[in-house]
Simulated scan of single mutants.
Amino acid sequence: MTLMRFPLLTVLSGASIAVLVAACSVSPDRETPAVPAEIDQEPPHPYVGMWVTADGHIRQELLANGRYDEARGRRKSAYTGSYQVFGTRIEYVDDTGFTADGTFDADILHHGGDVFYREGSDAHRRSSGS
């Protein structure tokens, strides 16, 4: 009986082979196969990105890694911390330990008494009169 050792190589593209090889590789300091980061991560939620007030004074960037960075006026990184999204609800934990929450309604975020708009969205353009 003859075994075909690499029948998949004829149907996989070069990129697929690279991912397959990387997924099956063993790091020298580990005994388990290394898994490419893009395979092991969940896709970001739909609210990742920049959210701004109508006047642009507060700019809050929700990063895909669960962190946020908020600028106020000319003060960059005025507030930083982590966040979690549960459906349309967001919960923040500032790096100082302060907590807050908010609610998304499509391209609008209600948070801390302010209204934020997804930067560049129709809602943002309508809010700033552009």
Rank of each mutant, 00 (worst) to 15 (best):
R67W: 01
E42M: 11
G66E: 07
A78Q: 12
E42R: 14
V52Q: 15
V21H: 13
T80M: 12
A22H: 06
I17T: 05
A123H: 09
P7I: 01
R30H: 02
A100E: 15
D55L: 03
D94Q: 12
S128K: 13
S127T: 00
A23W: 06
S27Y: 03
A71F: 01
M1N: 15
D105F: 00
S82G: 04
D94K: 02
G49V: 00
V115L: 12
M4H: 13
E31D: 07
S25F: 02
D55F: 02
V85M: 09
H110I: 00
I58C: 10
M1T: 09
S13L: 10
D95N: 13
A22E: 14
L12I: 02
F98A: 15
G112Y: 04
M50D: 12
A71Q: 12
E70D: 07
V19W: 06
V115Q: 13
A54K: 06
K76I: 00
A71G: 08
S82A: 05
S127L: 02
W51F: 03
H124G: 06
T32G: 06
Y79E: 09
L9E: 13
A23R: 14
A100P: 10
D40H: 03
R5N: 05
I90A: 11
T32S: 07
Y117A: 04
L20M: 15
V11W: 10
D40A: 11
E61W: 07
S128N: 11
A37V: 01
P44I: 00
S13H: 05
I17R: 15
